[in-house]
């Protein structure tokens, strides 16, 4: 819980301006929400197998934050930040680096659907 709040605050500090002031943020956010709503959650569940070796399926957080129930848009912005290496952590940069947009959206839809 605490971890997730930290994650949220950290991400909003880092990427909040991108969310809200880049181009046409309202439309971009609406598009993302639309993509997430239409996402292939079953594919996300399959892909999540790569995540939950570390991010526990039980939602516990020790050393590695829980991502169960994470806000889908925050999930997407965090993964993109690892993909572009703006966020540090070699494991996450590698794991995010091979995900394409569809896979990220599917994962976001899956993890955000879980109870936290």
């Amino acid at each position: 819980m605490v971890n997730k709040r930290f994650l949220f605050v950290g991400v909003m500090m880092l990427f909040g301006p991108m969310f809200f002031f880049h181009g046409n943020p309202t439309k971009a956010q609406a598009d993302l929400a639309d993509q997430i709503a239409k996402a292939d959650v079953e594919y996300g569940e399959y892909l999540s197998g790569e995540c939950i070796t570390c991010h526990q399926s039980t939602g516990a957080s020790v050393g590695i934050p829980s991502i169960n129930g994470i806000d889908a848009e925050i999930f997407v912005s965090i993964i993109n930040a690892y993909r572009s290496k703006e966020l540090e952590n070699k494991v996450m940069q590698m794991m995010a680096g091979r995900l394409d947009d569809e896979q990220i959206i599917s994962l976001a839809a899956y993890f955000s659907s879980l109870p936290d």
Binding site: I52, H55, Q56, T58, G63
Partner: peptide, 17 residues
């Protein structure tokens, strides 16, 4: 190191829970 503790808890939960 702390990440490895999280990984241990994660993988054993993934195996046995």
């Amino acid at each position: 190191y702390e990440e490895s503790i999280g990984w241990y808890d994660g993988i054993t939960s993934d195996m046995f829970s």
